[in-house]
Computed example of a mutant assay.
Amino acid sequence: MQDVKPAEHADPCATLIGDIVDSRGAPDRHALHTRLVSTLRRTDHLVAATTALRITVGDEFQASYETLGNALEAAFRIRLGLMPETLVRFGLSWGGATVLDARAGTQDGPAWWAARKAIEAAQAAERRPATHAVRTVYTPAQDDGPSAGAVNAALVCQDQLLSSLDERAMRILQRLVAGESRTEIARAEDVSPSAISQRIRAAGLEVIVNAARDLASVR
C-alpha cells in the first residue's frame, strides 16, 4: 500500500472559487471553455497567485492568493475578460487552508469552506430582484481578515455598475483597464476622444477602475 503523506498546514490565505453563470445554456461550450482557459492564464500572468487558477469541475475554477486584494483583482479581471458574452460569479474568503496534495494542488480547510458558502450566497442573491446584479461575495473564515461589511459594500456597488454597462461601455472599460489612452480607445471605436471622455463620465467607468484599484490594495 502506498504511504499517505500528512497534510501540510499553510498560513492564512485568500481563496477564490468562481463559476460560469448558466454555462449549460452556452451555444458553444467548447468555445466557452477555450475562452475561460485563456482568460485564467492571462489573469495568472497579471496577478500573482499562491496557487494558480485552475479549472476543477465543469466550468468551476479556483485559486488562492497571499492577500484578499489579489483575489479581488483576479476576480475583477476574469469577469471583465469574459463579459459581455459570459457572466461569472465568485465566492471569496480569508482564512486557514490545508494542502492535501501539493503536487496536484488539492487543498481544504476553513477558507475553502467559507468561499463555497460565499459563492452559494452570490447565487442566491441573483434570484432576488433587489440584488439580481450581485456576482461577487466575500465571507471571511476568521476574524483577523479584512472586514466583510466594508468589502461586500464595495463589491455590491461594483457589481451594480458593471451590470449597467452596454457593450460599447464595456469595451471602453476593458481598454481602460488594459492601460490604453483615450486617444487609442477613440481610434479603436472610430469616434472622437471627447466622445470617449463623455462616455467614460456618463457610465462611471473611472469610478469602476478606481474602485477596482482600491480593492486590489486590500490586505
Results as ranks from 00 to 15, higher is better:
11 D>T: 08
11 D>A: 13
12 P>F: 02
13 C>R: 07
14 A>C: 04
14 A>W: 06
14 A>D: 06
15 T>F: 10
15 T>N: 02
16 L>Y: 04
16 L>D: 03
16 L>T: 02
17 I>D: 06
17 I>Y: 10
21 V>H: 04
23 S>M: 00
23 S>P: 01
24 R>K: 10
26 A>H: 01
26 A>F: 05
26 A>P: 04
27 P>I: 05
27 P>K: 08
27 P>C: 03
28 D>Y: 00
28 D>K: 02
29 R>I: 03
29 R>Q: 10
30 H>T: 15
30 H>F: 09
30 H>A: 14
30 H>R: 11
31 A>M: 06
32 L>C: 07
32 L>P: 08
32 L>F: 06
32 L>R: 10
33 H>W: 12
33 H>Y: 12
34 T>H: 12
34 T>W: 10
35 R>S: 11
36 L>G: 03
36 L>Q: 03
37 V>H: 14
38 S>T: 15
39 T>I: 11
39 T>W: 06
39 T>R: 15
39 T>Q: 14
40 L>G: 11
40 L>Y: 12
40 L>K: 12
41 R>L: 13
41 R>K: 14
41 R>I: 11
41 R>T: 14
42 R>Q: 13
42 R>V: 07
42 R>M: 13
43 T>S: 11
43 T>W: 08
43 T>Q: 08
43 T>F: 10
44 D>G: 02
45 H>M: 10
45 H>E: 15
45 H>W: 12
46 L>G: 07
46 L>R: 15
46 L>P: 05
47 V>G: 07
47 V>S: 06
47 V>R: 01
48 A>H: 10
49 A>V: 11
51 T>I: 13
51 T>A: 15
51 T>C: 12
